[in-house]
């Protein structure tokens, strides 16, 4: 395997390693405020990712918004087949962590480099919670 083009170290992490397409957001996230939980599309008017599907993506959000709903919501959207592959936060909150673990969805918090500065939506990335790192593998 080729060496990653870039490595981001994360502070805290849980879950199995996954690879997928990155979606990088400049705005925080709540599955209840921002997401249509029947389509997997971010529908909040004016959200910086309005119209973007999170299905099968590796999501990068600077912050978590709200909210207790994430405790159930990740589990729900995963079973509906529209969940993301992993959640990477700058700063998250416990409900996102509880909800991601309950859903079996990898989650990380804190990063050595801001993804907004070094990653782009569409990049192919690998999240390795055990090694506490995120790797940029390919850029289309």
């Amino acid at each position: 395997m080729n060496a990653p083009r870039l490595v981001i170290e994360v502070t805290r992490a849980w879950g199995p390693a996954v690879e997928g397409e990155a979606v990088v957001s400049a705005e925080g996230f709540s599955p209840r405020y921002d997401l249509d939980r029947w389509s997997g599309v971010i529908t909040k008017r004016g959200h910086k990712l309005e119209g973007v599907s999170i299905c099968d993506k590796i999501l990068f959000f600077p912050t978590a918004k709200g909210g207790i709903a994430a405790g159930w919501a990740f589990h729900d959207i995963k079973h509906k087949g529209i969940g993301p592959k992993a959640l990477c936060f700058g700063i998250t909150n416990p409900v996102m962590v509880q909800g991601a673990i309950f859903a079996g969805m990898p989650i990380t918090e804190g990063w050595s480099q801001d993804p907004l500065q070094c990653l782009r939506s569409g990049d192919w990335v690998r999240v390795d919670p055990a090694a506490k790192r995120i790797e940029l593998l390919r850029r289309p």
Partner: peptide, 23 residues
């Protein structure tokens, strides 16, 4: 609910994190 948590911590001085449903 987050509103219950911030009330408990702030107004009562009790201690709780945001606990999602399954948690």
């Amino acid at each position: 609910d987050t509103g219950t948590v911030i009330w408990a911590n702030s107004v009562c001085g009790a201690r709780t994190n945001f606990e999602g449903g399954p948690s």
